[in-house]
Amino acid sequence: EPLWIRPDAPSRCTWQLGRPASESPHHHTAPAKSPKILPDILKKIGDTPMVRINKIGKKFGLKCELLAKCEFFNAGGSVKDRISLRMIEDAERDGTLKPGDTIIEPTSGNTGIGLALAAAVRGYRCIIVMPEKMSSEKVDVLRALGAEIVRTPTNARFDSPESHVGVAWRLKNEIPNSHILDQYRNASNPLAHYDTTADEILQQCDGKLDMLVASVGTGGTITGIARKLKEKCPGCRIIGVDPEGSILAEPEELNQTEQTTYEVEGIGYDFIPTVLDRTVVDKWFKSNDEEAFTFARMLIAQEGLLCGGSAGSTVAVAVKAAQELQEGQRCVVILPDSVRNYMTKFLSDRWMLQKGFLKEEDLTEKKPWWWHLRVQELGLSAPLTVLPTITCGHTIEILREKGFDQAPVVDEAGVILGMVTLGNMLSSLLAGKVQPSDQVGKVIYKQFKQIRLTDTLGRLSHILEMDHFALVVHEQIQYHSTGKSSQRQMVFGVVTAIDLLNFVAAQERDQK
């Protein structure tokens, strides 16, 4: 057995438009009618409502009807409940999964919650491996369901041993009777949507819809739904939504950006999952974080739909894509998950301010006199920076000697690579993860907040409520011999709460 199987392995699926269902090699399930009293909570997966979006479509000038398939009504709160249950049931049916076995899954959280929910009911041990950027709410729900959680670096490539995929496979090879159901490759993922989600949409719309818009992560949702719609409703256009920084969209030119990270969760990847059939997507749109969270908040405030950030991405694209539809036509959007997962993220004004998705003037509360002053007023001194090749031991000596707790790590040209902190280095040394002679590049981390000289002290204040420091950066445009230009970030300084307090105190003292 291989040590790991690539999540982007070539698909062996034989589905073709027009091929009889009787030739399918898979076990198919028909939607079942729910009894009045459910035998367990797993029976509350599927049969989610279709809700008309009344205000947002009109606000953006849509002539067509805009409908939302509300997947956050599933038992675990997301569309991923469907595939989690289906993968477990299919693994039980073919004898792969037996009582007492362990389920391991690399996930952005929602599939993990679905699997942990099913594992709690069915009696399996469950280990979820997820990147650090995923919300604390997801972690809390997983723990409450009895799952064990392993976190991995957000910026690790999918084929790196440190990625959530790599760590999951390492655990599988170490733990007896453990299984990775593997949402990236498992046919049960798109089949769950082909058999149930798509049929529900067709039934709820009486077979009449002209466009379907869905955000894409593993691709199982859009693949399964689109294949069924292509068979039953061939005139329906399928629109895929991919965040900026991901590479799922086609044509490839759409993916060209210097951005590699994004805040919206559960969609987009740096590889093409095996289950994603991009041939059934008629057109791709890219979405960005700001519009995703703005539209998610709009869905909550104006439509009462308590959905997550990827739902915002989907609707932001839908109001663009559906401009081509006329009166009497219908566009369906998939709202994948609930706001429950993001209470401390985009639902929080403070978080939105820190990330730059909300401006101070958007909030009406009274601010102190210094709130709208610029960061450049602080008069920061030149920063202490270190090269990635310097040793951890030497870096600790320098920081202690100069009285700093942290320093930016830059390359020879001064471009920011990340940050090192005294606390992080000492804990890594004590844990045996690094040696004093190791290069400081081994303990770089990139989960820090950046701020510009033109940003306000109010925004800085919000950042420092949650973080010990902020890195002050400025952009530099560099022209190359080819005539092309590129933008790079340079370090201007490091600012802490002490710097802000000293500035405010000094100004008030001078005024007296």
Results as ranks from 00 to 15, higher is better:
Val241Ala: 03
Ile247Phe: 07
Ala249Cys: 01
Pro251His: 07
Glu252Lys: 11
Glu253Tyr: 06
Leu254Ile: 01
Leu254Gly: 01
Thr257Tyr: 08
Glu258Ile: 11
Thr260Tyr: 12
Thr261Cys: 08
Tyr262Gly: 06
Glu263Tyr: 12
Val264Asn: 06
Val264Gly: 01
Ile267Ala: 04
Tyr269Trp: 01
Asp270Arg: 04
Asp270Met: 06
Ile272Cys: 10
Val275Trp: 01
Val275Thr: 03
Arg278Val: 01
Arg278His: 01
Thr279Asn: 12
Val280Ala: 10
Lys283Glu: 13
Lys283Gly: 06
Trp284Met: 01
Phe285Leu: 12
Ser287Val: 08
Glu290His: 12
Glu291Phe: 08
Ala292Trp: 03
Ala292Gly: 08
Thr294Val: 11
Thr294Tyr: 14
Arg297Gln: 08
Ala301Tyr: 13
Gln302Lys: 04
Leu305Gly: 01
Leu305His: 04
Leu306Trp: 01
Gly308Trp: 03
Gly308Lys: 01
Gly309Asp: 14
Thr314Tyr: 05
Ala316Met: 01
Val319Gly: 05
Gln323Pro: 01
Gln323Leu: 12
Gln323Asn: 07
Gln323Trp: 10
Glu324Ile: 13
Leu325Thr: 06
Glu327Ile: 01
Glu327Lys: 10
Gln329Gly: 11
Arg330Asn: 06
Val332Asn: 04
Val332Thr: 05
Pro336Cys: 08
Pro336Ser: 11
Asp337Val: 01
Arg340Thr: 01
Asn341Trp: 01
Met343Leu: 07
Met343Phe: 07
Thr344Phe: 01
Lys345Cys: 04
Lys345Trp: 01
Leu347Val: 01
Asp349Phe: 04
Arg350Ala: 13
Trp351Val: 01
Met352Trp: 04
Leu353Gly: 08
Leu353Asn: 04
Lys355Tyr: 10
Gly356Tyr: 07
Phe357Val: 05
Glu360Cys: 05
Glu361His: 04
Asp362Val: 14
Lys366Met: 11
Lys366Asp: 11
Trp371Gln: 12
Arg374Leu: 15
Gln376Pro: 01
Leu378Pro: 12
Gly379Tyr: 15
Leu380Pro: 11
Ser381Pro: 13
Ser381Asn: 08
Ala382Thr: 14
Pro383Phe: 08
Pro388Phe: 05
Pro388Tyr: 08
Cys392Val: 12
Gly393Tyr: 04
His394Thr: 10
Glu397Arg: 15
Ile398Leu: 11
Glu401Cys: 12
Glu401Pro: 14
Lys402Thr: 13
Phe404Trp: 10
Val410Trp: 07
Val410Arg: 12
Asp411Met: 15
Asp411Gln: 01
Glu412Ile: 13
Val415Cys: 15
Val415Ile: 14
Gly418Lys: 06
Thr421Gly: 01
Leu422Tyr: 05
Asn424Thr: 05
Met425Trp: 09
Ser428Cys: 13
Leu430Val: 09
Gly432Leu: 12
Gly432Pro: 08
Val434Ser: 01
Val434Phe: 11
Val434Leu: 09
Gln435Ser: 11
Gln435Met: 13
Asp438His: 12
Asp438Trp: 15
Gln439Gly: 08
Val440Pro: 08
Lys442Gly: 08
Lys442Pro: 12
Val443Asn: 13
Tyr445Leu: 11
Lys449Leu: 14
Ile451Leu: 14
Arg452Thr: 01
Arg452Gln: 01
Arg452Asp: 08
Thr456Met: 13
Thr456Gly: 11
Leu457Thr: 01
Arg459Gly: 09
Arg459Phe: 11
Leu460Asp: 01
Ser461Cys: 14
Ile463Cys: 11
Ile463Lys: 14
Ile463Pro: 15
Leu464Val: 13
Met466Lys: 13
His468Ser: 13
Phe469Ser: 10
Val473Ile: 01
Val473Pro: 07
His474Cys: 15
His474Asp: 06
Glu475Gly: 15
Gln476Leu: 13
Gln476Ile: 13
Ile477Ala: 13
Gln478Glu: 07
Tyr479Leu: 13
His480Gly: 04
His480Trp: 06
His480Ala: 13
His480Glu: 09
Thr482Leu: 12
Gly483Ile: 07
Lys484Thr: 01
Lys484Asp: 03
Ser486His: 08
Met490Tyr: 14
Met490Ser: 10
Phe492Ala: 15
Phe492Lys: 15
Phe492Trp: 10
Phe492Ile: 13
Phe492Leu: 11
Phe492Thr: 15
Gly493Arg: 04
Gly493Pro: 10
Val494Trp: 01
Val495Cys: 11
Val495Phe: 13
Thr496Gln: 11
Ile498Gly: 14
Ile498Glu: 13
Asp499Lys: 11
Leu500His: 15
Leu500Lys: 01
Phe503Val: 13
Phe503Ile: 01
Phe503Pro: 11
Arg509Gly: 14
